[in-house]
Amino acid sequence: MTRSQPWYFLPGPAPWPVIGSTALFLMAGGAAMWFNGVSSGPWTVLAGVLIMVYMMVRWFGQVIDESEGGLYSRRVDLSFRWGMSWFIFSEVMFFAAFFGALFYARVLAVPDLGDLEQKLLWPDFSASWPTAGPIAADPFTPMAAWGIPALNTLLLLSSGVTLTIAHWGLLQDRRGALNLWLLLTILLGATFLGFQMYEYGHAYSELNLKLSSGIYGSTFFMLTGFHGFHVTVGCIMLTTIWIRCLSGHFKPDHHFAFEGVAWYWHFVDVVWLLLFIFVYWI
C-alpha cells in the first residue's frame, strides 16, 4: 500500500456472498429432500457444504490479507468489535429459545400434564422431572451430572484460562507462550468434544436415553447438541487463529480476530455452565 491508510476501508465487489448463498440454497433444499427420503438429498447437501467451505476459506482468506496489508484502521477495528458483540448476542438469543423450551416444560407443561384436570386424558401420569411424558416409550436413565459432565465443566473452564494466558502472551509479544497456550486451549476443547461424543454413545447404548425420549431427551440432546456444534465451530476458529499466530500474524495492538474468537469461546463456555446447572445438575 503506497497510499496512506483510508479513514474507512471499503472493499470492492466480491463474489463470495453469492457463492455462499448458492451453498446455503443447496444445503437447505438438499436437507429438505433428504429428510423426505429423496436419494439425491445427501449429495446435494454435501455439494452445498463443500461450496460453503470453499467460500469461507476464500472470504476469510481475503479478509486476513486485507488485515495484514494494513487496510483496517482503528475505526474498522471498532466496527468489527461491534459486529462480533452483536453476533454473539444473537447467538445468546438462539440458545435462549431452547432454554426457554426447557424451563417451560419443567415449570409449566409437565406439572400441568400431571394435574387434576388432565387426569381426564392421562389418568396414570404423575409429573416429575426427568420425564418422557405420559406415553413413555421405554424407560431411560437420565444423565448424571457428576461424572463426565463435571469433568467437561472443568475442561472448558480451564480452556478459558489458558486462552486468557495466550492473550497475555500476545499482548506482551511473547509469541512462544502465545502459540503454546493457544494450542493447549484447542486440545482442551477437542478433549471436551471427545468426552461429549463418548457420553452420547453411553446415553444411547446403556442409558436408553435418546433424542426421542420425550421432552427430556429432546431438550437434553438439542441443547447439548447445539452447544457441541458451537464448540466445534469454536475449535475450528481457534485452530485458524493458531495457524495465523504460527505464521506471525497479529500485533500487540492489532489482533481483533484473536479477540473475536476469544469472546466467542468465552460465550460457549458460559452457555456450558448454564447447561451444566439446568440440564445436568438440577
Partner: peptide, 23 residues
C-alpha cells in the same frame, strides 16, 4: 424444533412425550 419434531422424534410440542403445542 418443528423440524426435529417432524423428522427426528423429539417431543417439544407433543403432549404424549411431555411437551406442549402451546409452547
Amino acid at each position: 424444533m418443528i423440524l426435529t419434531d417432524r423428522h427426528f422424534g423429539t417431543s417439544f410440542f407433543n403432549a404424549a412425550g411431555g411437551g406442549d403445542p402451546v409452547l
